[in-house]
Amino acid sequence: MPYTAEISRSNPTSIIFLVDQSTSMSDPIGGEVPQQKADVVADAINRLLTELSVKCAKEEGVRDYFHVAVIGYGATVGSAFAGSLAGRDIVPLSEVADNPARVDERSKRVPDGAGGLVETTVNFPLWMDPVASGGTPMNRALRYAENLVAGWTERYPAGFPPIVINLTDGESTDGEPSAAAEAVTAHATADGAALLFNLHVSAAGGTPTAFPDTADGLPDSYARTLFAMSSPLPAHMRAYAASQGRRVSETTRGFVYNADITSVVQFLDIGTRATELR
């Protein structure tokens, strides 16, 4: 059965984030307090990296169950890490966890337990900053990812296949990206083909959706293209999504529209196996 390989330090997998950094990412989205798309995406990446670090934290520190790359695409295509990791492609998670560019203090309003809200600050580690300049060379970015994926599958031929997570507003400027996406998922380990998931950040409206099983109801052709590009969720991830109360079927894909993608981290099984809910 595919996608059942153990994720361990001796058989790690890689997660490759592709981050859209084009000019269009400076457009605002959101309701009452509009945010730039670039901020939304940078926040998502920084949260995902924190999430991975916590998930892989053990007694002695963060374990290298995953190796992570953050690739930006806009005016150029390449590593989007800031700080001491700048310029590096695939980095072991323990090193990522220890080397954010900086830790911001962000203010946050939290319930005070007595029905009110109280203003506090929380530490928020940052590995990349929002950037918005240039076109959207999604094809080039996917080819970049393909190279990393190809190298990885040769290095760990028996491991859980690499996962590419593309965060974008969808408007590729160097051609239709479907073929380049297929080329990424044409690489495989003995455990299965590489996975490509997409997070679509868009001002086109419509209902925020996570892991849908149909393109019906998606607001525009960009969303539909990204949906079609996304890999179907492997069985155990579907089971996990189902246990979260999501409606899933054989055609459920790793696509998220204007919603939180951090739950994807919880889809990854390490160590003790949960019973599959039926």
Partner: peptide
């Protein structure tokens, strides 16, 4: 593969707890 047996409560992620526990006075 089918739908879950019933609606299940979603739990915070590890990072969400790590954020909340920065203020143990409040959480």
């Amino acid at each position: 593969m089918g739908s879950p047996t019933g609606p299940q409560r979603q739990f915070p992620s590890g990072a969400a707890y790590a954020e909340a526990l920065q203020h143990t006075q409040l959480c």
